[in-house]
Simulated assay, not measured.
Amino acid sequence: MDEAEFDRFADEYYQQHVASIRLSGEAPEFFHRYKVEDVAATLRGAGTTPLRILDFGAGVGNSLGAMTEAFPTSEIVLLDPSARSLEVARARHPGKAHFQHFDGGQIPFEDGAFDLVFAACVFHHIPSSFHVPLLKEIRRVMKRGASIFVFEHNPVNPLTRKAVRDCPFDENAVLISAGTMKARLRDAGLPDCSVAYRIFFPGFLSALRALEPMLRGVPLGAQYYVHAIKRDG
Score class of each variant (00 low, 15 high):
23 L>S: 13
62 N>R: 03
6 F>T: 00
45 G>T: 10
46 A>T: 06
25 G>C: 12
18 V>Q: 14
25 G>Y: 12
56 F>E: 00
24 S>G: 08
54 L>A: 11
83 A>W: 10
26 E>Q: 12
28 P>A: 01
55 D>F: 15
37 E>A: 10
78 L>Y: 12
44 R>G: 13
78 L>R: 01
58 A>S: 15
19 A>H: 10
37 E>K: 07
12 E>F: 02
68 T>I: 12
89 A>H: 04
79 L>F: 08
58 A>V: 01
87 E>D: 08
33 R>M: 05
66 A>I: 02
35 K>S: 11
13 Y>I: 01
58 A>W: 10
58 A>K: 01
24 S>H: 05
33 R>D: 12
72 P>T: 01
22 R>N: 05
62 N>W: 07
26 E>I: 00
40 A>Q: 15
31 F>V: 00
79 L>V: 13
27 A>I: 02
65 G>Q: 09
42 T>Q: 14
50 P>I: 05
9 F>I: 02
17 H>F: 14
87 E>W: 04
63 S>M: 07
36 V>P: 14
47 G>F: 05
52 R>W: 11
88 V>I: 13
53 I>G: 00
15 Q>S: 12
45 G>Y: 07
75 E>V: 12
66 A>N: 13
10 A>F: 13
48 T>Y: 03
33 R>F: 03
45 G>A: 15
58 A>H: 08
83 A>R: 14
81 P>Y: 14
52 R>G: 04
62 N>K: 02
38 D>F: 15
23 L>R: 15
21 I>V: 06
86 L>S: 00
70 A>C: 11
84 R>K: 15
20 S>N: 12
42 T>W: 11
82 S>G: 03
4 A>Y: 02
18 V>T: 05
33 R>N: 09
12 E>I: 12
78 L>D: 01
64 L>H: 01
47 G>S: 06
50 P>A: 04
65 G>L: 11
22 R>F: 03
69 E>P: 04
74 S>A: 15
90 R>Y: 05
49 T>F: 09
42 T>N: 12
31 F>S: 06
35 K>G: 10
67 M>H: 02
57 G>K: 01
81 P>H: 07
8 R>V: 04
23 L>C: 09
65 G>D: 07
22 R>T: 03
